[in-house]
Simulated scan of single mutants.
Amino acid sequence: MEEILKQILTGINEVKQEIGEIGSNIKTLEHRLDRLEKMDSIEHRVEVNQIDLTDIKEILEKMDSFQTDVLKDFFQIFKGSSINKVYREELNLINQRLDAQLTKIAKNEESILMIEGKSSKVSNAPI
């Protein structure tokens, strides 16, 4: 009987040791799972950020190509002689209109001076 009890005690001790090993293995697994969850979270953030960066890069490339095309067309039009000719004609027309207005102003000033001269002669005339 004593021998059976010794065997039972050794069996219980072995079970205790194995349960302890299982407990430490479970702790190791939990630690590894936590690390994996963190890695998944980091990988997810990296993937999301990569998608965002890729989208931003594509948008910037589209904007750059659009701006270059538009500016290229604009400069080609601006360099074209027809646009310069139109601008010159418009400036000449504006200058002609300004000259006409200046002529009118000069004539009016002359008329004012003549009227002032006549009124001063009339006022200076003896009564």
Rank of each mutant, 00 (worst) to 15 (best):
L102F: 14
R45A: 10
N95P: 01
F78Y: 07
L9N: 15
D99S: 09
I19Q: 08
R97A: 09
E109W: 06
N49P: 00
I59K: 14
H31F: 15
I22E: 02
K27W: 04
K57H: 14
L33C: 06
G23M: 12
L102A: 12
F75Y: 12
P126L: 02
I127D: 06
E61G: 03
E109K: 08
E18D: 09
A125N: 05
G23E: 13
D34V: 03
F66N: 01
E43T: 11
L36V: 07
M1K: 13
E21S: 02
D34E: 08
S24K: 04
D34P: 00
Q96Y: 05
K16L: 09
E18I: 02
I112A: 14
K85Y: 08
E37H: 11
E37R: 03
H31W: 11
A100C: 10
E37T: 07
H31E: 10
H31P: 00
R88N: 08
P126Y: 00
D52Y: 09
D34N: 12
I112E: 06
Q76S: 07
S24W: 01
P126H: 01
Q7L: 11
L98I: 15
N108T: 05
N49Y: 05
L93Y: 07
K72L: 00
S82Y: 04
T68I: 03
S81Y: 13
E109Y: 11
N49M: 07
L71K: 01
K16H: 10
I19K: 07
I51T: 15
K16M: 05
K16D: 05
K107V: 09
K38A: 03
L9C: 09
I22Q: 05
S41F: 03
V70W: 00
M63I: 11
E58L: 15
K104N: 05
E109N: 12
F74S: 00
T68W: 01
I105V: 13
K72C: 06
K85S: 14
H44M: 12
I112T: 10
L33F: 13
I83F: 06
E90F: 00
S123R: 08
V46H: 08
K79N: 13
V48F: 04
E18W: 02
L33N: 12
L71A: 01
T103M: 04
D73R: 03
E89F: 01
K27G: 01
K38Y: 04
G20H: 04
E116Q: 14
I26F: 00
I115M: 09
